[in-house]
């Protein structure tokens, strides 16, 4: 079963209640053929466990790495991924689109 956005936000709340460090990543802007629509969420805990998707798998690894820093520091981050930024970022989108992802700590 696919995780709907409601499952993801419910998981974020449950994980936080369970005392885990939690970050929420949200696709806030897309250009071209981005794999996941604006508003898609990925929730990440302090062990790197995650639920949901912001790109269908292309850049999740990089988002998770940044999310761990955000959980630690508490300062939100704005990430941008796309083929045009291959030199600046570890990950790129094979579909040729570009996305911006907002990562914030829960709590």
């Amino acid at each position: 079963m696919l995780s709907s956005d409601s499952d993801i936000l419910a998981a974020a709340e449950a994980w936080r209640r369970a005392g885990r460090g939690v970050a929420l990543a949200t696709v806030i802007e897309t250009w071209g053929s981005a794999p996941r629509p604006v508003g898609s969420h990925l929730v990440i805990d302090d062990m790197g466990r995650f639920l949901g998707s912001v790109s269908g798998g292309c850049v999740e690894g990089a988002v998770i790495a940044d999310a761990l820093d955000v959980i630690e520091a508490g300062t939100p981050r704005l990430l941008e991924f796309g083929v045009a930024d291959e030199t600046a970022w570890r990950a790129g989108l094979s579909c040729g689109g570009r996305i911006r992802v907002f990562v914030e700590r829960v709590g």
Partner: peptide, 9 residues
Amino acid sequence: MRPETLAAL
């Protein structure tokens, strides 16, 4: 995000 905001959402 504050936990109470997430809970309200």
